[in-house]
Design a protein around this nucleic acid. Sequence first.
RNA 1: GCUGCUGUGGCUCAGUCGGUAGAGCGUCACAUUGGUAAUGUGGAGGUCACCAGUUCGAUUCUGGUCAGCAGCUCCA
Length: 588
Amino acid sequence: MKAIYNNGEVMTLPAEEETHVIRHTAAHIMAQAILRLHPQAKFAYGPATERGFYYDVDLDGEKLSDEDLAAIQAEMVKITKENLPIKTYELPRADAIKLMEDRGEVYKVEHIGDLDEDARITFYQQGDYIDMCVGPHLTYTKALKAFKITGQSGAYWKNDSENKMLTRINGVAFHNGEELKAWEVEQEEAKARDHRKIGREMQLFMTDDLVGRGLPMFLPKGYTLWQILENYIKEKERRLGYLHVMTPCVGTVDLYRTSGHWEHYKDNMFPPMQVEDEEYVLRPMNCPHHMRIYANHPRSYRNLPLRIGEIAHDFRYEASGTLKGIERARHFCQNDAHLFVTPDQIKSEIAAVCDLIFDAYKDFDITDFRCILSLRDPADKKKYHNDDEMWDHAENALREVLNELKINYTEEIGEAAFYGPKLDVNVKPAVGAEYTLSTCQLDFCLPAKFELTYVDQDGTEKTPVVIHRAILGSLDRFMAYLIEETKGRFPAWLAPVQAKVLPVSEKYMEYASECCETLLDAGFRAELDERNEKIGYKIREAQQVERVPYMLIIGQKETEARNVTYRDRDTGESTTCSMEEFMQLLRK
RNA sequence: GCUGCUGUGGCUCAGUCGGUAGAGCGUCACAUUGGUAAUGUGGAGGUCACCAGUUCGAUUCUGGUCAGCAGCUCCA
């Protein structure tokens, strides 16, 4: 595939850049289509993105309907069919400004003002449409073969909410129609595994307007799964020397003033409530409570590391537009812990946390994730605790440990917590943007703010270092991820119902009931389908709707032989064996 | 929170160019006692999200509120 670069050369594109150039060219062609249909349009930025492209455009107050978007799409098709050549040229700064001014492109003019004095300013043109751009682009409009406008949203000029809101029109573009089709199929599949949909189908959780927005409630099946996760991680932590505590969901505003959270996050907390002479807030996180537990009595270096863990209920006043099922809610439960350590224990404790994260991922069969070393933005003195020396020390320490552990990671600036750098482990859900599942944060800041100390070997008082960490992150979000990864077809150890007993007819209800009781007595999660329905019907529902890993078919043969026939959800195969053998299978 | 779209029985969706609604699934009853992905018949179930306005009359039009969805922003 050929492209034209901004020095005017036409060259074959490297394969890894093809998609990007296709998408960027799609943005230009869309802009041309918009300009034809909406001549008042002024263009801001129009880049290619990970999946497609967008263009931010100022329509002078005009609102676009779905029909308008369809018309823009149709006009784009027309432009590709016209097969306009795409040309490029460079202009001196003054001429560039004049050209953009003449065309009323105020945002482009402002953009030129932001460029270095000696920057080259190049333009790309197809037909009567001219865009300031560094390219490269496809050489003819016809080379754009497969694209689709996917929607619109608001976006601020230069991403700053002080600036004017523009209309962002989003699209996707691919090499060919097959790829576009594949993308559409993928979208449909993603929708089918959305945890909100499956959660409703499987009766895992619900929301209710009267209870409130962003406050999901776990139903019996969902809470069963939730408890399995809770017990799983608490048992792992117990074996690693964690001590679990339970602390209240409210705290005084002063508690959060001390930690600094009030200053940084009060807008994202539920507003304070006045009780007698004190102000309380619903807690958004648990660090301060755990800090105060540490401070409960004097500590010696012999007590460290001290690992305080809690499955903690938290409340955050998340903006309404960001709420998403149990993935992001206003109430959630963190698998939180704070490790109070001496400086020379940092390395081994972080290593143990990383081991625990990857160990857990193995158990849940999570393989598609990426690690990020989240650092401060040194220029942003407001967002981050202002102590460069502390930050340099903490960032270097964490980086060093990750390198020693040979963990693959990328560094991201401006992603740290206000009190310290962190290792984040991110995953991509079926629907929507990537999010953090696990985190491990190194904190030299809060222990000092809370004036925590321990008596060291030499008898002097020193400040401990704190490692904040969450393995399953929030249990709620982790469950959302599991639902989408498994499409609700949980492995037997996680399934809310492990075995559903299905009598072939009511004649065999007694033995079926006995089988169910045997399973329940042995501690398994079993249910009996007592309804007067045919076996095929019961199987269909147990398999397709409830997604139960094993169905026990109980009829005349089983009743007479006093054994069971189980049907495997994933293979569809039936096997007859003794109840003891079946339970052995469930224990695996 | 911002921009856009959406809101009809538990679920998925028709429909009403303004004259108070329909299907399938589910649910309930009865019949059927059936061996691996939907047995048959019948019944119940809706203030068409909520509140105003326009109108003789609003589920339908207008405004507001609430909620959901997509994206933006945010995520200690």
